[in-house]
Structures are given as C-alpha cells and as structure tokens.
Nucleic acid binder design. Structure first.
Length: 601
DNA sequence: AAGTGTTGCGCC
DNA sequence: AAAGGGCGCAACACTT
C-alpha cells in the first residue's frame, strides 16, 4: 500500500469564504446516495479530497472492479473527514445548488457521519444566477462561460469513463480519482470565481434583498426536506396487497390483460368500439372518461378494466411507491425544486408530496393515502390553508368590486355566482350540483377559460355533461358578472407582450419582474401575476414560520403548510401561526386574507 | 439497456 | 383571433 501524501490544510484554514462541491453516488440520501469526494476552493487555492471514490466494491460484481482501483487507494480516513467537517463548520460557504450538497454533506459518506452545514451557506451561485440573470441558463457550465470564467473541465472524461465501463450515468463515485479530481476541483474553483463575479456585479446590490430571500428559502427547504413526514408504510403495503390480490382475481377472469396496450387492442379492435376522442397525434384515446362512459353503457369488461387499472395505478404510485421510498426512520422525503417553475412556485419530486391524492380518488374500503400520514411520538399534524387565495388575489389585482364584496365574511361566494351565472334560484332542487358547476366556472374563468375547454373540463373531472352552447353561455355570463377580471387579463397580456414580463407582488417592497420566455404565451401573463405573487408570498411565509417556529414544517403545497406540533399545544400554536400568516398576507395583498386550520392526524 | 417523447392523471 | 395556468410520476411507444 502506497502511503498517501499529507494534506496541507493551511490554505483552507486561513480562508474566510470557501466554495464547496461534492461528487456522490446518487441524488437522494434516502435512495442511498452518499458523498464520494469533496472539493473546496478559496482565494488563491483549492483542495479536493476523496473519501469513498472509485471504490467499486459498492457494486455487486465488485471483485473484478475492485482490482481496477489497484494498489493505490487515494481515499482519506475518518480522521481527515472529521477534520474537514470541523473546519467547514467555521467557514462561510458558497455552493452551486447548495441544497443538494447540503443534503449530501449531512448524509456523509458510506462510512463517515455527516455534518449539517446549512448555517454556513452564505451564497448559492445557481439561485443567484436565477435572480441576477433570470433569462439565462443557471447551470454552472453556462454561468461560467457567460462570465468568461471558462466552462466545466473534464466532464466528458468522467461521463466517458462510465460509459466505457458500462456503468450507470450518474455514478461519479465509481470513477477513478485521477479522472474525477480535476473535474470536481475545477467545479469548486469555478463556483468560487462565479461568486466573486456575482457579488461584485452591479445587480447584486440592487437585488440584495431578493438574493437573501432566495438563500433563506433554500435553507428552509433543506430543513423541511431533511425532516420529512412520517408515513405508515406497513399499513400502506397491506392496502397495496389487498388491492393487488383483488385486481389479480378480477383480471384472471378477463379475456385480456389489464395493461393499456392490451386494453386498447381489446376494446378498439377486438370489440370494435369507436373511441369518443383521439389524442393529439390522432390515436384512439383510452382515458378515464372513455372507460366511465363504457361502464355506464354496460360495455362488457369495461368495469373490470376500470377497477383493475385504477387499483394497479394507485399501488404503484402510492401504496407501494411511497413505502419503497421511505427513509430508514419511516419518513417520506421529497425534494423541492426552487426556481424552476416559471411562476415562482415550488415543484416537488422523488416523492411528489404536492400531489398526494385526496380521499375521493381512492376506492371504497381502502384507507386513503392522506390518512396514512403520521406524526412523531407526542405530535400531530395540522394543515394551514390560505383560504380562496387565488380568488382573493385575482379580485384585488383586478379591482373587481363585486368579487371583493362577495369575498366578505359570511357570504357564500359560489352560491351567489351560481345564481348569476347559471341563472338558477337557490331553491332549485339541483342547486348543490349547480353550485359545483358555478364553483368550477369561477376557478376556470379567473384565468380566462373558453366554452369548449370548460365543457371538456366538466366532463372529465366532474362527469358533468353540458352542451357546448350552455358552456359558452356560462363562461360569457361569468365574464359579464366579473368584467374587471377580463380587463386585468388583457392588461397583463399587453404588458407581457410589450415589456416581456409581468409584475409580481406589485406595489410592495417585494415587487419583482417575472419574465416570459419566447415560448410562454403572453395570454398567460395574468395567471403568472396572480399565481406568481401568491407563490412569492408563500415562500416568504415558509421562511418566517421556519424562523419563528423552528422544526415544525413538514410539507408545503402552493398555498398551504403542514406542521408537526405537540399534541397538547398544537391547536394553540397552529392558530397562532395561521393568524400570523393571515396578517402577513393581508398586509402584502392589501385585502383581508384568511388562513384555515385543519387537524390532519 | 437506456434515453426521449406521449398520454393520462395526481395536486394547487 | 383565441387560448385557464402551473407542475411530476408511471406506463408505454419508439429510438439508439
């Protein structure tokens, strides 16, 4: 065994601010991803250290591959890892996409315990690039090239090595250290230089508040993600098994397998049924609505197919899909994307906790997925929802007087709208159903739906079938009832066309521009303004709650926050947080905003 | 076998 | 001229 040269820590120890980049074995700690190496750069120096790099014993066929590591093992010891962690705990740290490296550093290597560096992050060059140059690519390579710092180094070599050795694309941890070292080092150096350029540029000063908000949100999201949300995996799997057993039983009696290909073949070809709709590409469409109509018409095997296909989908997406992704501590961890959604909303991936199905989407007799969420010992879950948030903001930004009036306390907005728009009396025996249609008309019409799309929406989502004339009539009546919405829609569209952007949180100290790209239709400007302003508010609200009530947020879904709170004080705390949120929203939007509190578990 | 695009559908 | 908007995941079709 060749002795490794000693590490010269002096440069790192002397540095005030360092950039950090890791290479790891995957994307998410709960999928087993761990740090393989760490690179750091500072003023006038850099250092790259492998800790679990090129160790091919990670693979099942490790024998042969372990040999390729040779006699020389470049990886550093736990002592050196610990020393690195303790040095980093004292530094100001800059990263490109900090949330990822924070998670990885917190997860550690396969053998060494991680460290939480979230309080050390002072800058994220990726988030900064989205603030400072919102219409440019935020990738490190592209940012470097734009600012004359050179592109990434050695990326092709690393990717090429994996390809040549027939190894998975993202497994940089398997690549020999001599190939990875220049690559990871160059990334850390590039990140450092990019920070220098960004903070010294003229935009940094004018955008300082927005930059801070983005960095704060990143830190908050990191904490929410790390906390995760408890899930009853055992019960979930029990439901999955029951559903699959039943599905298999039904399928066994059928003349075709319940995959979509076989079903299309059976219904459209063997049975010769004509499709009600075709896809954009002209293929016959076998969607939920088609199956539902066939079931209603008594078509043979339609109901069986409906039951089996829905059950299998629910199993793979949730009842088995979620347990497969749970961490060792029984919690589900999503990853929020910050700055990727055009409107400024967050998106959520891996476990998409922003699309957990509601109870009405689950077949009878099976515990709904939301009922399988859990809280840690002694705690419960509370959900805080901004009440009719989009409607309120749309009313305010458009100055729609009737809408504002009807959003007052104690008024049934949807009932009054239904009376106007559908021309019905509240005594109508079908008023409940009609109110649902009126409600749907509102949520669709605030962003300008047309009659045809409204008709399709009602049919698909509500199994409500109205004629095109009637749908056009409803949309027209809605626009006449709340004309200011239409005016605001056109105004935003014109501004988007003329200026290329719309204003987010207009007239507040938080105002910023939301740019529409060449592929974004100007007519989406009004939606962008309303949705984007709400998103901007919720992002600030999340940070505030995380600061004032630390370690409580476990989830967020566009206009709601889920909190894990002690059972005995939860009601009081949840209502306190809701009142604070409502106060903040009311101040920012300039009309009364409400936050509803709901106990989950 | 792995990548890309399409369809359908979950959420707000 | 008219157009609801915004996402991510699973299954499948098709290509490389």
């Amino acid at each position: 065994m060749t002795e490794l040269p000693p590490i010269d820590w002096s440069g790192l120890e002397a540095a005030e601010t360092v950039s950090l980049d890791t290479e790891c074995s995957g994307l998410f700690a709960d999928d087993g991803a761990r740090v393989a190496c760490v690179a750091l750069a500072w003023e006038g120096g850099s250092l790259a250290l492998p800790f679990d790099q090129g160790r091919l014993d990670k693979l099942s066929n490790g024998n042969q591959l372990e040999r390729s590591l040779g006699e020389y093992n470049p990886n550093r010891s736990s002592f050196e890892w610990d020393l690195l962690c303790s040095v980093l705990r004292e530094k100001r740290i800059v990263m490109h996409n900090a949330k990822y490296d924070l998670h990885m550093m917190a997860a550690g290597t396969r053998h060494f315990e991680g460290v939480d560096l979230s309080n050390q992050v002072i800058w994220d060059t990726m988030l900064a690039s989205r603030v400072l140059e919102p219409r440019e690519s935020a990738g490190l390579d592209a940012c470097g090239a734009r600012h004359g710092l050179g592109g990434k180094l050695g990326a092709d070599e690393v990717a090429g090595w994996l390809k040549k050795n027939r190894l998975p694309k993202g497994r940089y941890d398997l690549v020999p250290w001599e190939s990875v070292e220049p690559y990871v080092k160059a990334d850390a150096e590039l990140t450092y230089q990019l920070w220098r350029v960004q903070k010294g540029g003229e935009g940094a000063e004018t955008s300082q508040d927005e930059l801070s908000r983005q960095f704060d949100l990143c830190r908050t999201l990191f904490r929410i993600e790390r906390r995760g949300i408890a899930y009853d995996g055992l019960e979930s799997i029990k439901c999955a098994e029951a559903m699959l057993r039943k599905a298999d039983e039904i399928e066994a009696s059928m003349p075709f397998k319940c995959d979509i290909t076989a079903a299309k073949k059976y219904f459209f070809e063997t049975a010769g049924l004509p499709p009600d709709r075709v896809t954009d590409k002209g293929a016959p469409s076998l969607d939920r609505e088609q199956v539902r109509d066939w079931v209603a018409a008594g078509i043979k095997w339609a109901e069986e197919y409906q039951i089996v296909s829905r059950a299998r989908k629910a199993v793979s997406m949730w009842y088995q899909g979620y347990p497969d992704k749970m961490g060792a501590d029984g919690r589900l961890r999503t990853s929020y994307n910050q700055g990727t959604v055009v409107s400024g909303r967050l998106s959520s991936e891996r476990v998409n906790l922003q699309a957990v199905p509601k109870a009405d989407k689950i077949q009878k007799g099976i515990t709904p997925v939301r009922k399988l969420l859990r809280a840690k010992e002694g705690c419960g879950l509370w959900s805080l929802d901004m009440s009719q948030a989009e409607l309120r903001v749309a009313a305010q930004y458009s100055g729609c007087t009737l809408m504002l009036e009807r959003l007052a306390d104690g008024v049934d907005f949807h009932a009054l709208t239904t009376i106007d728009v559908l021309g019905v009396s509240p005594d109508d025996p079908d008023f409940k159903l009609k109110r649902d249609i009126g409600k749907q008309a509102t949520f669709s019409s605030i962003f300008g739906i047309g009659g045809e799309s409204f008709q399709k929406l009602l049919a698909k989502q509500g199994d409500v079938h109205l004629g095109l004339d009637e749908c056009e009539q409803i949309v027209k009546a809605w626009r006449n009832t709340y004309p200011e919405i239409r005016w605001a829609y056109y105004k935003a569209q014109n501004r988007a066309e003329r200026d290329g952007y719309v204003r987010i949180l207009p007239g507040t100290e938080y105002e910023r521009k939301s740019w529409l790209g060449p592929r974004d239709w100007p007519h989406t400007g009004w939606n962008r303004m309303v949705q984007g302003s709400l998103a901007a508010f919720v992002c600030m609200w999340l940070v505030a709650v995380d600061q004032d009530w630390p370690d409580t947020i476990v989830q967020t879904v566009h206009d709601s926050i889920v909190l894990e709170l002690p059972v005995n004080e939860g009601d009081r705390i949840a209502n306190e947080i809701a009142a604070d949120g409502a106060r903040r929203a009311t101040e920012i939007f300039g009309l009364t905003m409400k936050v509803d509190v709901d106990r989950y578990i």
